[in-house]
């Protein structure tokens, strides 16, 4: 997988930089352009025009992932009126891996529902930001999290552009990050669709290889320009995500962030990462040089105003 190679490249770049310091030798800098993804792995297409807000997916997820009892039953639709701090709609949280929110865009005479969970990015920000490598992207496309090594710094929550990972703050002893894992251990691994996909009565969720569901998305838009806006959310956003969305109204109006850009998040950090080997290799020589220079001056001046402490130390 190309994206994996890329991560390895970054790693080896840093490791190489560190090594170079020890060896005192500089490695030639190499810049490799990132040229798209291989699109292996599975994906899910969320067709917002089909979702009826029945919350079956939430129920199925709760069962499949053994999540704790929800505040209200999954057939209680008053939950759509919940407002969080700042008038925000519900989000994923500890014990809730997926939520369905209701929106009322003015151009439609009926509400629109939006299911939302981890998007299983092709180049996940959570993964690249984790300093103990707790995240992995499986070949099937799921972004997995390993609670055994997580230290709890919550950098992944800072990094995730979709505000997905949640932290179980309430646990004093082993708080962990909780998020959708695309049902990998129980289903995806065996080629089965995620539980929420299977439970969706209207097939608002379509499971398949990411390449295929992306084609479906485009085909549906092509066939029904009167229904859909011409955009597949997740095709390119932050480098592409395994979960894709098509919508009858402007994505902005139903809570999607349209300003994320097409770069994977790690690209924003690259300019800094690139300086690391540079500093590691150039600084020692540079400052050793300064030292020589300064001391030469010292020697010439035969420094006579050395402090008392200097004597005391010698």
């Amino acid at each position: 997988m190309k994206s994996l190679n890329r991560r390895n490249f970054l790693k080896s770049g840093l490791a190489g930089g560190a090594l170079a310091t020890f060896l005192g030798r500089e490695k030639p800098a190499q810049a490799r352009e990132f040229s798209g993804y291989t699109n292996k792995g599975t994906g899910v297409l969320v067709d917002l025009s089909r979702c009826v807000g029945c919350r079956s997916c939430e129920a199925a997820c709760n069962r499949e992932q053994n999540l704790p009892e929800p505040d209200v039953p999954f057939d209680d639709f008053s939950i759509f009126d919940t407002e969080r701090h700042g008038g925000l709609k519900r989000r994923t949280s500890e014990g809730v891996f997926t939520v369905v929110n209701r929106y009322n865009p003015e151009e439609l005479d009926h509400p629109l529902f939006r299911k939302f969970q981890c998007n299983h990015c092709e180049e996940p920000a959570c993964l690249t930001s984790c300093f103990v490598n707790a995240y992995t992207k499986t070949p099937e496309g799921a972004v997995m999290y390993n609670p055994k090594v997580c230290v709890g710094c919550r950098n992944c929550m800072i990094a995730c552009p979709f505000y997905v990972p949640a932290y179980s703050y309430s646990k004093p002893l082993n708080p962990i990050v909780e998020k959708c894992i695309m049902c990998y251990p129980t289903r995806l691994k065996f080629g089965k669709p995620p539980a929420c996909v299977e439970a969706c009565p209207t097939e608002a969720l379509t499971f398949g290889s990411r390449v295929n569901v992306l084609k479906f998305a485009k085909e549906r838009i092509r066939q029904h320009p009167e229904i859909f806006v011409d955009h597949v959310y997740g095709e390119k956003e932050v480098g592409g995500t395994a979960w894709l969305y098509i919508s009858p109204v402007d994505f902005k109006k139903i809570g999607f962030d349209m300003n994320l850009g097409h770069q994977p998040i790690i690209n924003y950090v690259k300019s800094f990462l690139a300086t690391v080997p540079m500093v590691l290799t150039i600084w020692p020589a540079l400052f050793a040089g300064f030292y020589r220079l300064a001391n030469r001056k010292d020697g010439l001046k035969k420094d006579n105003n050395e402090g008392a402490r200097e004597e005391s130390q010698s």
Binding site: R7, L10, K11, L14, A15, T128, S129, C130, F131, V132, N133, A134, V149, V151, C153, N155, I266, V269, F272, L273
Partner: peptide
């Protein structure tokens, strides 16, 4: 852990 158990060397942290 980041020192001895599991490394994420591409991460800024």
């Amino acid at each position: 852990y980041p020192m001895i158990v599991s490394f994420g060397p591409a991460a800024v942290l």
